Amino acid sequence: MTVRQNPSPTGTLPLSELAFGAAGIGNLFAPVSDQDAELAVEAAWRHGVRYFDTAPHYGLGLSERRLAAALRGLPREQYILSTKVGRLLEPSSSVEGDDLAAGFAVPATHRRRWNFSAHGVRRSIEDSLERLGLDRIDIAYLHDPDDHAHQALTEAYPELERLRAEGVVGAIGIGMNQAELPARFVRDTDIDAVLLAGRYSLLDQRGLTELLPLAAEHGVSVVIGGVFNSGLLADPRPGATFDYAPAPDALLARALELKTVCERHGVPLRAAALRFPFGHPAVASVLVGARSAAEIQDAAAMLHHPVPAALWAELKHRRLLGPDVPVPQAVD
């Protein structure tokens, strides 16, 4: 079974319901071989994934290079690729050690430098195009401008507008693991998309407070990442992580209760977690990081697992979801 395609931010390019997050093939936390990276992308394509997301940050450019190699030869008009701006990669004078302090098992060949200036944005896009071997970026996201909000709004965003007008960038977005600043961009700019990580899941619906209603009102497409909240909703157990830190006891207990309800309806918790964001009309795609063919195959299977309406009703009855939280239509 292949994943469905949804309208894109610009309304002209489709976003597949399931998106491939390429941080994993940038050696996030542990090495991945070139072959496994290529097989993961091939499996995604085979299952109908046509939206691929990467960033210079991921493996100091390794993710972009590997994604380029895996997509080479595939019809360019059939897939959407997004990358990000905000971190420039500067060559290190000498290669000493690895990049694990930043989360990636790669040699420290470069150092990252925050830069949301107009010049930095243009250079970042040019560097990404060279690593990707492409002549355009379908979606360019402002990447984690938490501490650079003013410069991102007054310098980086206008430069992305110029690049969009030139046809170098097809759509503009902002990608963050908070909902408040993206909401400001939806209100105050003409962005096309938001990549929201971890803030619209079965455990955390902060994106619903302001961002998602604003996005629906302004016609901004939302891509949801982190639906498993870095592992807790994939496999809730003692020692599981939430937002890359050990999960507090109360959250673990809540995740275990979610799992129990799902199992009572014959639904894996992973399937409910993947399907949940589509209850909101602003959500166009769910992004899942994958480092192997098996992981992407599992994600595709879970996304299409039948989820009965009774499951969502019980989650609300047990107050595991608020009464006003929108839920997907049943997939039986």
Rank of each mutant, 00 (worst) to 15 (best):
H150W: 11
R131A: 07
P328H: 01
A44Q: 11
P91D: 08
E155W: 01
E17V: 00
H57Y: 15
T12R: 12
I25C: 10
A30V: 11
A37S: 13
P56F: 10
A250H: 08
S230R: 09
R187Y: 08
S221H: 10
H304S: 03
A313K: 07
P107Y: 12
R270A: 03
Y79L: 15
E263V: 02
I137V: 15
V325K: 03
T241A: 09
A240V: 09
F228H: 03
E155Y: 03
M176V: 13
L202E: 00
R76K: 15
A55Q: 13
G173K: 11
C262T: 08
A40F: 08
F52S: 12
G231N: 06
P56I: 08
F185G: 02
L251Y: 13
E155D: 13
G11H: 04
E257Y: 01
R46H: 14
A55E: 14
E210R: 08
D204T: 01
F104H: 15
L211D: 00
A313G: 10
F242Y: 15
D332G: 03
L88V: 04
A282K: 03
A156G: 07
G231A: 07
L129I: 04
S94T: 07
D34V: 04
E17N: 01
A152I: 08
L60A: 14
A108E: 10
D332F: 01
R237M: 09
D53E: 15
A149I: 05
H265N: 04
H47W: 06
E263A: 12
R46P: 02
G48F: 10
R136S: 04
R318K: 09
A140D: 00
R4K: 11
L269P: 06
A313D: 11
A19K: 06
Q297F: 00
L269A: 04
G279H: 03
L39M: 12
W45C: 08
Q205T: 14
H304T: 02
D53S: 15
L203V: 04
V331I: 08
A273E: 05
Y141A: 06
Q151T: 14
T241R: 10
R318H: 07
G207A: 02
A271R: 04
A299E: 00
Y244R: 10
A70F: 08
D138I: 01
P9K: 11
L28N: 10
A245I: 07
Q35C: 06
L18E: 02
R65H: 14
Y200G: 05
D324P: 01
I139V: 15
G86C: 02
A282C: 07
A216E: 11
L39I: 04
L303F: 00
L153R: 14
L62P: 08
G59D: 12
D127E: 15
P158C: 09
R131P: 03
T10A: 13
A105T: 09
G61F: 14
G26H: 01
R164K: 15
H280K: 03
T2A: 05
R131Y: 05
V3R: 00
H304Q: 07
R131L: 06
V227P: 03
A216I: 04
V41C: 11
A101Y: 12
E77F: 05
A23E: 06
P306K: 01
N115A: 15
L62Q: 14
H119P: 05
R66W: 10
V85D: 03
V168A: 13
D235W: 04
I80M: 14
A282F: 06
D127A: 11
E166A: 14
G24I: 07
